[in-house]
């Protein structure tokens, strides 16, 4: 069963690595344009939940439904196409290709989808501008600050106009001020695009940018909306 109107939902997910259970009956749902924070202690299973939801890791049991389709029944190629076309990703570290300039990095997902260079770079520049880092377009990742690099990564995650943005500790490597600016720009851009956001974080101040939080403990999830 999927919660009414949800874009992406999962029910009773189970996943073990060897004999270690990472998910033990976790459920989740996010609606279009909604930002949901996934919180929990280290090793609680929150990143595994994100990887299952994004189709990167297949769960051992449970169902995942994206836009009415059963994600677990798709072929690898179909899941890859979905990740390239409809999902965006931001991680904590090492996402940008060091040999490419920032604008080429942002344009990369579009180029992989067959968009011509000129058009891809035009769209990439618009995203860089939205994230207030258009001044570093021609620089390589090694030549920009951590905060600028992360904004470039956010620009890249949004350049394909994804319907779901997966962000795993997106500010984990930044100081408070830069982290906050990244969250502000990320959530503004996502809300404007009506993209759903799955935001994994262990920081409450980052989670405070979300609409709702789900806490994962020992592989089980709890929607905090219903605890009050």
């Amino acid at each position: 069963m999927t919660p009414a109107g949800s874009l992406l939902s999962a029910t009773d997910l189970r996943k073990s690595y060897g004999s270690t259970p990472a998910l033990d009956g976790a459920s989740f749902s996010v609606h279009p344009g909604e930002i949901v924070a996934v919180m929990g202690p280290s090793g609680s299973g929150k990143s595994t939940l994100l990887h299952c939801l994004a189709g990167i890791v297949a769960p051992d049991a449970g169902t995942i439904t994206y836009d009415g389709r059963d994600l677990t029944s798709l072929t690898d190629a179909e899941r890859s196409a979905l990740r390239r076309g409809e999902f965006g990703f931001v991680f904590q570290f090492g996402q940008l290709v060091p040999e490419l300039t920032c604008v080429e990095n942002v344009a990369l997902p579009l180029r992989l989808n067959g968009v011509k260079r000129k058009d891809a770079e035009r769209r990439a520049r618009a995203r860089l501008e939205q994230l207030e880092v258009d001044d570093v377009a021609g620089k390589r990742p090694g030549e920009v600050s951590g905060g600028q690099g992360q904004r470039v990564a956010v620009a890249r995650s949004l350049v394909t106009d994804p319907r779901v943005l997966f962000a795993d500790e997106p500010t984990g490597a930044l100081d408070s001020l830069n982290g906050e600016r990244v969250m502000e720009l990320l959530t503004d851009a996502a809300r404007e695009a009506r993209a759903a956001v799955v935001l994994v974080t262990h920081e409450a101040r980052v989670a405070a940018w979300s609409d709702r939080e789900v806490v994962v403990r020992d592989g089980r999830s709890r929607d905090m909306e219903f605890t009050r």
Binding site: R205, A208, S210, V215, T227
Partner: peptide, 16 residues
């Protein structure tokens, strides 16, 4: 503790 946590985060959202 969970109820308090939800309340704290609600307040943090409002302040944010």
């Amino acid at each position: 503790l969970d109820a308090q946590r939800a309340e704290h985060l609600r307040m943090m959202r409002m302040l944010t």
